[in-house]
Design a protein around this nucleic acid. Structure first.
Length: 920
DNA sequence: GCAAGGTC
């Protein structure tokens, strides 16, 4: 019986083991979070293995999700996985007018340092049926979550996606999150996308303009980057504002009454209840009243004693660490953070980037204090804290991810600034979990001549936290013993003169406080922004750590101000913040906010470029230098968009001039990701985008005005002059002449987007972020499917991709060699099966002539068009240009017929190489 | 050579 039961049990186990478990991929925002969450959900039993990125490990365990036992795989990203970038053609500073950056296509790309993380996600998601997002529960976290989803859906389109919402990383909280999975918050993510896109467009447009303009106007003075950033410039603005307040300060005299009372060695000073008066005569009247009051006795009106305490600090967050580092240690905020990160990596302190200033109940404070109890300097204090019991004076902020900054390991081996920062963190920690300092304050109020004077004394009873927190001062102040109703003769009564003083320059700590108050940057970025404006030379540090504007910074802000632009004031950024919040609340549409903001800044950009001389003058004034007249124009060159790229379907194609200035080509702005290009230089001398839109192709397609080199070419197009205006997308004769196959490009685009999937974020091309493998692109002259030059178009045909049928005897002639074209039919299965086309019959088809029969102009040899009906040198929409016979064309290199210079055996500079050179 | 936001 026992054996039978055992067999049954084993059988059940076997069946159970053979039922494949559901497998879920879980992704957190950072490795630390993934590790802790896995630990809680697995009750410490998770197994760890390496991912492709050394910093982002993979944890595996089983857990119950929606009532089912699921195999969990947990990994992490390191913050944002994707980043907005301009499409290729706009990345070169001189490629376009900076104003075009307000409209240029931007796309989300995976930066090089995130590729390994992305690849881990792509690999792991293949074996999973669902994805759970565990990023931080804030706006950026929501956006990072969507990035993770995009990457994973690109691999697995039908993926089920969940969002785990947690308020802190504790066992109860993450378990609750897993039991109450929700959907990602698209609105919060959209708000971040709007912010990122705007920052990029505005930052790049203004930075390029300012830099190029000022470098051009002051070539011998300015050779560095004159960057504009929505956080950088308001940060500079704060420093300039304080400087100007001091610069414009006019001191004002004031007078006050002062009374002293000396007994023995102790002099007690009484201050006037009216503090000070700016009117000397008025003050003199009071002075007389007091001095002449008989019998010049001060009467004690009240004596009060009350306990007074000096509060211990709150647990330390990033901002506090930066401020203290700057104020107390005289180490810059940025440097303080760099040191703190190093200490963190060595395990001496907890994670230093935290907005939390309260300890959770779950943290073992006693254990942390115990670690410091043996320290030669503050060990005794730690002992006292243990006797009292650690009792933090908690703040109210929590980022729900990290505890306040505290020491995690005891050490006495540090030195220099590392030792100073570690000591600050330890002393602050011990102070914040100890006790407030206690004292007793005595307030004495006296009356003389109808005027009230006050004095105070302080007796310190218990120093408590002050014993360890050397950065705070609390001084005792002795006072005589007074009794209500008694009187005394003042030792002196004076009327001292004083003067108001200019405000001090900002310290770094003041600046951080201002940035925080006006929502400029985040806790994690304040120090970096300050560092950036220092690096740019916009601000500098003088003695005692005070910040002052530099020459360039001052000139810039004065330039903006003179144009009545509020770029250096914090309101612009604050306005955007309000809009972003509205997007999150669902009261504003992200597209509308983006559009409005872009228009707002475009207007500002217009003003700054039109009135750039004012900027020159203001900067020149501060540099004591005269701006150079007629500077090189920054805004003259506009990249001319022609039509949407048939291949990628997202980006525009633009007309470009070769660097050698001897020809033009049209290429996709997304180069090098999309390599669509039409070379026009063989037969065309010059080309420009006309102002006319092509009515047949649609609103955004522009016609091009071309000037042809040879008479037979424009004759072929039935033009009476070398100049010819038409549409490259729909003019068949023109396409044939230039060897352009639009349909082939479209098909390539379709294939590539099918294989790569697409992203759901705004303005992202169908090819997705730059991770996806780029479809192979033809290196032949003007792209054609499978037209690998080594195989050639004919070999493809022979290979059976499309097969020949009978040739027609009434075929038109080849526009290049004048031979009669051969008519064929597509046999390959697909969209064009059965469609007829013409090709040139010469061996290996060197002319590369290809015309769809149904796009063939008719009649074959029409009478020349009159100028009256056709207009000069152009084609009408809706009418095809007839094919005309032309003289046999000779190769430009060897002067032989039957091929062009592209295919000429004597051509030592093959097109493909040249193409690449042009493109790069 | 551009921004700001995450994080080793």
């Amino acid at each position: 019986m026992v054996i039978f039961l055992q067999i049954c049990r084993n059988y059940c186990k076997l069946i159970k083991n053979n039922v494949p478990k559901m497998k879920y991929l879980n992704v957190a925002e950072k490795n630390d979070a993934a590790k802790t969450i896995s630990g809680f959900l697995s009750r410490g039993s998770s197994r760890r293995r390496d991912g492709l990125s050394v910093y982002n490990k993979i944890y595996e365990f089983n857990a119950a999700v929606n009532g089912r036992d699921v195999q969990m795989v947990m990994t992490s990203v390191s913050g944002h996985l994707l980043n907005y970038e301009f499409s290729g053609a706009y990345r070169n500073w001189r490629s376009c007018n900076p104003v075009q950056l307000f409209d240029a296509t931007v796309m989300k790309c995976c930066p090089e340092d995130s590729v390994k993380i992305r690849k881990t996600l792509e690999r792991e998601i293949r074996g999973c049926s669902a994805l759970i997002i565990w990023t931080d529960c804030d706006r950026e976290g929501e956006n990072i979550g969507i990035e993770i989803i995009d990457v994973c859906r690109n691999v697995k389109n039908n993926l089920t996606v969940y969002r785990a919402k947690f308020s802190e990383i504790t066992a109860a909280s993450v378990r609750r999150a897993l039991d109450n999975l929700v959907q990602p918050d698209q609105r919060q993510s959209q708000a971040v996308d709007v912010r990122s896109e705007l920052d990029l467009r505005i930052g790049a447009a203004f930075t390029r303009f300012q830099t190029l303009r000022l470098q051009s106007v002051f070539p011998t003075i300015i050779d560095s980057l004159v960057s504009y950033g929505s956080c950088q410039i308001p940060t500079l603005g704060f420093v300039v504002q304080r400087y100007k307040e001091a610069e414009n300060f006019v001191p004002q005299k004031f007078w006050k009454l002062k009374l002293t009372h000396t007994v023995g060695d102790l002099t007690v000073e009484f201050t006037w209840a009216r503090n000070r008066l700016f009117d000397k005569k008025c003050c003199e009247v009071f002075f007389m009243l007091v001095k002449q009051s008989p019998p010049l006795l001060a009467t004690v009106m009240s004596v009060t004693q009350k306990p007074k305490s000096k509060w211990r600090p709150q647990p330390m967050d990033t901002i506090e660490l930066e401020k203290l580092g700057s104020r107390k240690l005289k180490i810059s905020a940025k440097q303080t953070m760099t040191i703190a990160e190093k200490l963190y990596q060595q395990g001496f302190i907890s994670y230093p980037r935290t907005e939390t200033n309260m300890f959770s109940k779950e943290i073992n404070l006693r254990g942390l204090v115990e670690k410091q109890a043996e320290h030669p300097v503050w060990g005794n204090f730690a002992q006292r804290v243990l006797e009292w019991g650690p009792n933090p004076r908690n703040g109210k902020k929590s980022d729900q991810a990290h505890p306040p900054i505290h020491p995690t390991k005891f050490t006495t081996s540090l030195s220099g600034n590392e030792q100073k920062v570690y000591e600050l963190i330890v002393r602050h920690f011990l102070a914040c979990v100890s006790r407030d300092a206690l004292g007793s304050e005595t307030l004495v109020s006296v009356e003389i001549g109808g005027e009230e004077f006050n004095a105070s004394g302080l007796l310190i009873l218990e120093r408590n936290y002050l014993d360890v927190y050397i950065y705070d001062r609390w001084s005792a102040k002795e006072i005589h013993e007074y009794e209500r109703g008694t009187s005394f003769y003042p030792s002196t009564i004076d009327m001292p003169e004083g003067s108001t003083t200019a405000p001090q320059m900002l310290t770094e700590a003041d600046l951080i406080a201002l940035m925080e108050k006006h929502s400029i940057g985040t806790d994690a970025t304040h120090a970096e922004h300050i560092n950036t404006v220092k690096e740019r030379g916009y601000i500098g540090e003088v003695e005692n750590g005070y910040l002052v504007p530099g020459t360039l910074g001052m000139g810039l802000v004065e330039g903006y101000d003179a144009m009545s632009l509020t770029l250096a004031q914090p309101q612009l950024r604050a306005g955007l913040e309000a809009d972003l919040k509205a997007i999150c609340d669902g009261t504003k549409n992200p597209d509308v906010v983006l559009k409005d903001q872009i228009e707002k800044y475009r207007e500002v950009y217009k003003i700054i470029t039109e009135r750039a001389q004012i900027l020159d003058e203001k900067v020149g004034f501060r540099f004591n230098s005269t701006p150079q007249q007629n500077p090189q124009a920054v805004e003259s060159h506009m990249m001319e968009e022609v039509f949407r790229c048939p291949r990628c379907g997202t980006n525009k194609m633009v007309l470009k001039r070769k660097s050698t200035n001897n020809g033009v080509y049209i290429s996709c702005t997304d180069y090098p990701r999309c390599k669509s290009v039409f070379w026009l230089d063989d037969v065309i001398k010059d080309a420009k985008v006309s102002g006319q839109n092509c009515q047949r192709c649609g609103g955004e397609t522009k016609k091009i005005t071309m000037t042809f080199k040879q008479r037979d070419t424009w004759m072929f197009l039935n033009s009476d002059t070398p100049e010819y205006t038409s549409c490259l997308l729909c003019d068949s004769a023109l396409k044939s002449l230039l060897d352009i196959d639009i349909e082939a490009l479209r098909r390539q685009g379709g294939e590539s987007s099918n294989s790569q999937g697409s992203s759901s974020v705004r303005n992202v091309p169908s090819s997705g972020y730059n991770s996806a493998t780029n479809p192979s692109t033809s290196s032949s002259r003007n792209t054609r499917p499978g037209s690998d030059p080594s195989r050639g178009y004919d070999s493809q045909r022979r290979g059976g991709t499309s097969s020949a049928s009978s040739a027609s005897t009434t075929s038109p002639t080849c526009p290049k060699c004048s031979q009669q074209l051969k008519k064929l039919t597509v046999k390959k299965a697909g969209g064009n099966q059965g469609r007829e086309f013409y090709v040139c019959p010469t061996p290996e088809n060197p002319c590369r002539t290809f015309i769809w029969a149904d796009e063939m102009p008719a009649p074959a040899n029409p009478p020349p068009r009159s100028r009256a009906t056709n207009g000069r040198g152009g084609s009408d929409d809706g009418t095809e240009n007839p094919t005309r016979p032309r003289a046999k064309r000779k190769c430009a290199i060897c002067r032989r017929e039957g091929h062009t210079r592209t295919n000429c055996p004597q051509n030592i500079n093959p097109r493909t190489k040249r193409q690449k050179q042009e493109e790069t």
